[in-house]
Every structure is written in structure tokens, then in C-alpha cells.
Design a protein around this nucleic acid. Structure first.
Length: 199
DNA sequence: TTCGTGATAGAG
DNA sequence: TCTATCACGAAG
């Protein structure tokens, strides 16, 4: 049960695939809320047509100007915020890791309130519905454009940061969800058999 | 399966 | 100015 240490800048100065895989099982802390990362996707700055850097100059500028471990947050489909983390490796290139799902472990009441506010009827029973998708997760944590560029590494009082994995069972790689380009890249990582993943 | 909803970027 | 596209999710 080691690895409860907070992830520092150097963790995000690795290849984006290593980072995306390595974040599975880590704890995300966001304000007073907590959850274990159970699903991520990797997007590479170069050679990946599905990455925003392939089509968006603004994203290319962000990758150039911000340090590894910065939050890259954007608004999609007119209603969902997406939380990503910037990775930068001089050897392996830069990239973005989309945080797709959490198993919530702290602040469940707050998450329930925020998520239920968007629903007509709150789903009964299990709390799987809270953070089992990138848009849901952002709503539960109240991630917005205000968080874009936030440093998830530096300082003692940072709002959001990760803590090391505490014993991950098995990680499976699959194709990424919801994209139309490079659909065959197996760059989605999930905690095997976990019931808190999306879809 | 349908559709809501808005930012971004490139074309015209 | 116009339009295509988009890393989604709820309701039907």
C-alpha cells in the first residue's frame, strides 16, 4: 500500500500513454472532493488526428505555453466540461490525458446534489451515476473554464491534485470513446472490471 | 435513437 | 457571415 504521495511535476513529464495508464488507481482531489481514477484517455500532440492540437491553434498554444501538470479544460457539445491534464516529455512528446471516470470516495453528498440538479429524476441505488463519464465527472466536481490552466502540481494549497495509486489490480487498454478519427488507437485505459467506468 | 446546446476554426 | 464539427448524456 505505498504510493500515497502526491504526484509532482515529474510524473507528468513522461509520455502521455504512460501518464494516462499511470493515473489509473490514483486519487484525484478537487477541493474537498475525492475519487479514484478508473478511466482515462491519451491524446498525443503529434501523430494523433483525434487530439485537439491537430485542429485547434489555441490548443497548440496552450501546450506550448503551459507546464506539464496543468489542467486543460474545454466546453463541448454546448453543455459539458472536460477535464484533461497536460503532459510534456522532451523524449516522448507532449499530450493530454482526459480524465473520464472516477470512483467517488469523498464528498458524495455534494456530488449528488450537483448532478441531481441536472436530472429530472435522480437514479436510485448505486452511486455509479455520479462520475462515470467525463461530463458527469466535471459536473460533480464543478470543473469549469475557470479551472483551465490550473496548476495541479505546485503549491501546498492547490485546489486540485493527484495522489499515487494505492494498489491497482489490472489495467486494460481499449479504443477511445466518442471520436471519429484514429478510432483504432487503443489509448483508453480502464481499471479492469470496475463498475464505475463510463457507458 | 434523438436531440439539446455553444465554442472554435476554417471557408466563402 | 456561414457552417461543420465536436473527447457527451438524458430522455424517449
Amino acid at each position: 500500500m505505498g504510493g500515497r504521495k502526491r504526484l509532482g511535476r515529474s510524473f507528468f513529464e513522461a509520455g502521455v500513454l504512460d501518464c494516462a495508464r499511470g493515473l489509473i488507481g490514483c486519487e484525484l482531489r478537487w477541493g474537498g472532493l475525492r475519487g479514484v481514477v478508473v478511466e482515462t484517455e491519451a491524446y498525443a500532440e503529434h501523430g494523433d488526428p483525434a487530439c485537439h492540437t491537430a485542429s485547434r491553434p489555441g490548443t497548440r498554444a496552450f501546450v506550448r505555453d503551459f507546464p506539464a501538470g496543468s489542467a486543460y479544460v474545454y466546453f463541448n457539445y454546448g453543455m459539458h466540461w472536460m477535464l484533461n491534464v497536460l503532459t510534456k516529455s522532451s523524449a516522448q512528446g507532449n499530450g493530454l490525458v482526459l480524465i473520464r471516470a472516477l470512483r467517488p470516495t469523498g464528498g458524495l453528498d455534494v456530488m449528488r446534489r450537483r448532478r441531481a440538479a441536472r436530472l429530472r429524476r435522480e437514479p436510485p441505488g448505486h452511486d455509479r451515476w455520479l462520475c462515470s463519464g467525463p461530463g458527469k465527472l466535471a459536473a460533480a466536481l464543478a470543473v469549469t473554464g475557470e479551472d483551465h490552466g490550473r496548476d495541479l502540481c505546485h503549491g501546498a494549497g492547490v485546489h486540485g491534485f493527484f495522489r499515487g495509486a494505492g494498489g491497482v489490480a489490472e489495467i486494460v487498454a481499449t479504443p477511445r470513446i466518442g471520436i471519429s478519427k484514429a478510432v483504432d488507437f487503443p489509448w483508453r485505459f480502464v481499471a479492469a472490471g470496475d463498475s464505475y467506468v463510463s457507458r
